[in-house]
Simulated scan of single mutants.
Amino acid sequence: MSDILEEYFEALERLKSGKTVIMPKGARITNDCVSLEAGRKKGTIKKSRPIFAELIKAIDAAKEEESNPEDEIRVRLDAARAEVTRYRTLWEGALAREVSLLKQLWDERESWAKERAALAGGKVTPIFEGRANVVDQR
């Protein structure tokens, strides 16, 4: 294999591993990206040149192995949406519990107010009425 082809294959390996030198990380594997990563001009790898036949096969195989970044983004987005839904459900449950407790507290206050009004309404005679006057006189 010639030195030029070795440079192209090394560039392909760098693209596969994500440790690129020239191209940005996460660049898609294409003929043009491999040629640019190898330090050559865009379009130097052509199917019409028989010297590049093996390299083109390797690039095509790497393309198929490469996961589609859009699919990864979609999977992460779906996971984030599921997490948002989960936390929204937990939040709504917490709000429902709070409203339920407020309603219970309100009902208890109303019943206590009714009992207090019934006690203060004169139906109950205070036991220590005379003693209260004794304490006041001291």
Rank of each mutant, 00 (worst) to 15 (best):
M1W: 09
S2K: 13
D3I: 09
L5M: 13
E7P: 00
E7Y: 02
Y8E: 02
F9W: 05
L12W: 01
R14N: 06
L15W: 00
K16W: 00
T20G: 05
T20A: 03
M23H: 02
M23D: 01
G26F: 10
I29V: 13
E37W: 04
A38Q: 07
A38T: 09
G39M: 05
G39R: 06
R40K: 14
R40E: 08
K42S: 14
G43V: 08
T44D: 12
I45D: 00
K46M: 13
S48L: 06
S48C: 10
F52L: 03
K57C: 04
K57Y: 04
D60A: 11
E65N: 10
E66A: 15
S67A: 12
N68W: 00
E72G: 11
E72S: 14
R74G: 01
A80E: 03
R81I: 06
E83K: 11
V84M: 06
T85S: 12
T85M: 01
T85F: 01
R86E: 03
R86P: 00
L90Q: 03
L90N: 01
G93C: 02
R97A: 04
R97T: 07
L101F: 08
L102K: 15
K103Y: 02
K103D: 09
K103C: 02
W106V: 02
W106D: 09
W106Q: 15
E108P: 00
R109P: 00
E110V: 14
S111E: 15
W112G: 03
K114G: 03
E115G: 06
A117W: 03
A118T: 12
L119F: 14
G121P: 05
K123W: 02
P126Y: 04
I127L: 15
I127G: 04
E129C: 05
E129G: 12
G130M: 04
R131S: 09
R131D: 08
R131P: 00
V134I: 14
D136E: 15
Q137Y: 06
